[in-house]
Nucleic acid binder design. Structure first.
Length: 273
DNA sequence: GACCAGGAAGAGT
DNA sequence: ACTCTTCATGGT
């Protein structure tokens, strides 16, 4: 069962994990701080039980089968080799939703800072090994300070999106179950009703939090990679239109198959730039 | 300063 | 259904 903790946590799918100088990864998942490291085939961890670690890191998934499915050409083959052991994590949906609303038109360090700031301002403090961590706050905790309460988090134009989405989810207790139960395309339309969630954010959320592996998120990196290596005829000089986005994601779905979301993540993780 | 980053909303056609 | 503009922040 191939698994690389470093590839999995460093590839950019999650924003709240840090690697200490001593070689331990620290992260907050739901209401607990988790400390974990990998030594060859064995995982050492604190803060969660084995069942949770298996579930969170998708260790129950037959990754060999997935790789076999998506390994359709030399280019993806190289990416898979380079990022060997990368797995998609099962992220808590609410945190994932807000994270990808905060991600638009931003680089990863900036996104990480925003998520950390939201947690610090509105989350619950947890002490662990003498340091203070914070849970990711519930919708009501984020919205209770009003739109202005978020200003300190420096979300820029995304601030009203986070506020309004928090307000609407606050009254939607069933939203997680609903999205889990819906097929990919329907869940996508549903997510895009939320303020600040467009095609790209919706695909990321469905892939990272709802295990809809047929999602194929197209950001600026994937767009570049796909155009250069798979769709050379596509002219994307003037940004990415909705139609171009659909062309690329449908190609990804056809070419890489039902686990194309995994292919996307290997391509993203192996990107050069 | 210019340009870029895991884009999306709103207005105008 | 399509195109165009604007949006706020931080890194290079």
């Amino acid at each position: 069962m191939p698994f690389s903790l470093d590839q999995t946590l460093a590839c950019g799918q999650v924003f709240r994990w840090d690697l200490s100088a001593a070689g331990w990864w620290y992260g907050v998942v739901n209401d607990k701080v988790i400390k974990i490291r990998q030594d060859g085939p064995t995982l050492a961890f604190e803060g969660a039980d084995t069942a949770f670690i298996r579930q969170y890191f998708s260790l129950d998934l037959d990754i060999t089968k997935v790789i076999k499915n998506i390994d359709q050409d030399p280019f993806i083959h190289t990416a898979i080799k380079r990022c060997s052991g990368l797995r998609l994590v099962r992220q808590p949906p609410w945190e994932c939703l807000i994270s990808y609303i905060c991600s638009t038109n931003s680089n990863i360090p900036t996104i990480r800072r925003r998520i950390a700031s939201i947690a610090e301002q509105f989350g619950k403090a947890i002490e662990f090994e003498g340091k203070t961590y914070h849970t990711f706050p519930e919708p009501a905790s984020i919205s209770c300070g009003g739109d202005d309460g978020l200003t300190i988090c420096k979300l820029g134009y995304r601030q009203p999106y986070v506020f309004r989405t928090s307000c609407s989810i606050e009254n939607e207790k069933q939203w997680e179950e609903t999205l889990f139960s819906l097929p990919y395309e329907d869940a996508r339309k549903e997510l895009m009703q939320l303020h600040g969630v467009g095609p790209k954010a919706a695909d990321c959320i469905l892939l990272f939090a709802f295990q809809k592996y047929e999602a194929f998120p197209v950001d600026v990196w994937i767009r570049r990679i796909m155009q250069q290596n798979y769709l050379p005829a596509l002219d994307l000089a003037a940004g990415l239109t909705n139609r171009d986005y659909d062309t690329i994601r449908r190609f990804g779905r056809e070419h890489f198959g039902e686990y194309c979301g995994y292919a996307q993540e290997y391509l993203f993780a192996a990107r050069e730039g």
